[in-house]
Structures are given as structure tokens and as C-alpha cells.
Design a protein around this nucleic acid. Structure first.
Ligand SMILES: [Mn+2]
Ligand SMILES: [Mn+2]
Ligand SMILES: [Zn+2]
Ligand SMILES: [Zn+2]
Lengths: 138, 138
DNA sequence: GATGTAAATTATAATGATTCTAAACTAGAG
DNA sequence: CTCTAGTTTAGAATCATTATAATTTACATC
């Protein structure tokens, strides 16, 4: 159970002022055991339910972008409808449940090492990610 | 070099009327040797340059959706800005060049077999795709 | 603790991709 | 040729996201 000072330090150390909005969002995103995958809309709804004082949607966007820029969040592209964000900022793989429309992390050991044999001159590999789309049986 | 009757048959056989708009788009998309990756905007621009008679943007969307539904096109999700479409409708992997912002097909042999070890009860795997983000060196 | 200033928040407008609507047009069956 | 369902179309609507510009806040300096 993190307390606010952890988040205040985290924000300060990366040049972000610890405002009450950012701290609330930090608590919501990072004060948990498991990876959290969410959309802006999802996050915004949770914030509306959890706190009386509203955080403007623009601030939710701004904050998520700031956290992404600082490497606290990672953006995942599943479809072009909306962006998904991930509190697991490492390079990793996903199941995407097409019925629940939600992401599930895959461990590297669930996928195995991927070795790309093709090389393009002048280009370097930035990331290798596997997306496994799953759906209900039958 | 396909002639129109190939496309007319293709459309007919899947219950789509061969209109002049659909035939033009077929020629543009499928009368080529290599896989074509495109966005709606990209396709629309090519059509505007290639033909004097304009095809309305709504028709371009309608047609691409119809082709996707019929399995002539595949949608690829790279980011949430816009959708990419692919004339290679098989399950396959991609490079995404972050500088040119374009997709490049990877052969299965460039990636190797991917064996997902994790199983979720009640769920089946629909597709497994690898996205390798690349960018200019240095 | 008061003051000044840059950073942040906010409501609202703008943007841009996509989808919807409803009227006009057309393919093709009969 | 006629009729009708399918298609195209311009334009409006929608929705996620970004921009704007005024207000508020954090916090360094006094
Ligand atoms: Mn989609
Ligand atoms: Mn993006
Ligand atoms: Zn994840
Ligand atoms: Zn492809």
C-alpha cells in the first residue's frame, strides 16, 4: 500500500509537479498489485466514481500523456477505435479478449523467444510484440 | 494484368454488385504483384489522382468495409490514429517503419513458429500476430 | 507568510477519422 | 422495359482526441 509521498517523489523526480489530480491518478493506476490495462474513458469513469471533486477530461488526457512520456505508462494499439494504456511498461505480449474487449498480459515464457531473421539496412528494431486475439469457444 | 471480368466475377461470387466504383477500387487494390498496405485517406488520394470521375469518400469507406467483410481485405491496427488495411489477408506478421509510418510484410520464416503456452479455459485463439517496430539507425 | 511566475487545470472549441442519413441513382431480375 | 433492392452520394452526426485561452495552483524567492 503506497502512500502519497511515494507518488510525490516519483512525480518530482521526473519534473512533474505533484498536483492533487496527478496524485489521485497515480494512486488509481500504480497503487495495485497487478498490471492495469485501460482506456481514457475507462479511467475517467473510475475517477468520477471514486472522487467527488471532478478531474476534467482534458487533465486526464494531459496526465496520461505526461505519464506515458515519463515512461510510467505504455500505449497499446489494439484497434483504431481508441487507445489502450498499460501500467506494465516493459516490452511484453498480450492476449486480447475479443468478447470482453480487454487485454491480458502474457509472460515471456508463455510465448518464447522471438528471433526476427529479416534485417532492413539502416533500420533498427525498437520493439517486438505479439498480440494473440482470443474469443469464447463455440 | 487482371482484366475487369476477373473482378466482376470476384464481386458477383460474393454477392456484391459489380459497380464501376467497386471495379475501380478492385483494380487499384488487387491488380498488383505485391501486398498493398494502405489507409482510407491514402486510397482516396490515389483514386482522386487516377480517375477524373470522383468516388465519394463514403463509398470508399463502404467498399473497403464490404471487401473486409468478404475477406478480400484485412484490417491492421498499428495505432489509434487511423486504420490500416492489407491486401494480404492471411495471418501474417509485420514490420512497422516508424519513420515512414508504413507496414512491411514479414514471412513466417522471418519470424519462426510461435507457440503460445498459456491457455485460458473457454477461450480459443483466433490469431497470433507479431508487430516489429523499426526505425532509422542512430 | 506574502509575491511573482511558470506550470497545470479547466471548460470549451476545434479537429479529424469514421459512421450515419436520406435522397438520388443503377444493376439486373423478371 | 419496369421495378426494386442495392448502391452511391453529399452532407450531417458522432466520438476520440487535441488545441485554446482563461483561471488557478505550485513553489521559489523574498
Ligand atoms: Mn476496428
Ligand atoms: Mn498514437
Ligand atoms: Zn500489458
Ligand atoms: Zn501485411
Amino acid at each position: 500500500m503506497n502512500n502519497n509521498s511515494v507518488f510525490i517523489n516519483k512525480l518530482r523526480s521526473s519534473g512533474l509537479r505533484p498536483t492533487k489530480q496527478r496524485i489521485k491518478i497515480c494512486k488509481l493506476l500504480f497503487d495495485r498489485k497487478n498490471t492495469f490495462h485501460f482506456t481514457i474513458n475507462h479511467l475517467n469513469n473510475i475517477l468520477k466514481n471514486k472522487y467527488v471533486e471532478k478531474i476534467s477530461l482534458a487533465t486526464v488526457y494531459n496526465t496520461v500523456h505526461a505519464f506515458k512520456k515519463m515512461g510510467y505508462l505504455k500505449e497499446i494499439s489494439i484497434n483504431s477505435d481508441k487507445s489502450y494504456y498499460d501500467t506494465n511498461v516493459t516490452n511484453h505480449h498480450h492476449f486480447f479478449d475479443e468478447n470482453k474487449r480487454e487485454l491480458i498480459d502474457l509472460d515471456d515464457k508463455d510465448v518464447g523467444k522471438i528471433n526476427i531473421k529479416k534485417v532492413l539496412p539502416g533500420k533498427k528494431i525498437n520493439s517486438i510484440e505479439v498480440l494473440v486475439k482470443i474469443a469464447n469457444n463455440n
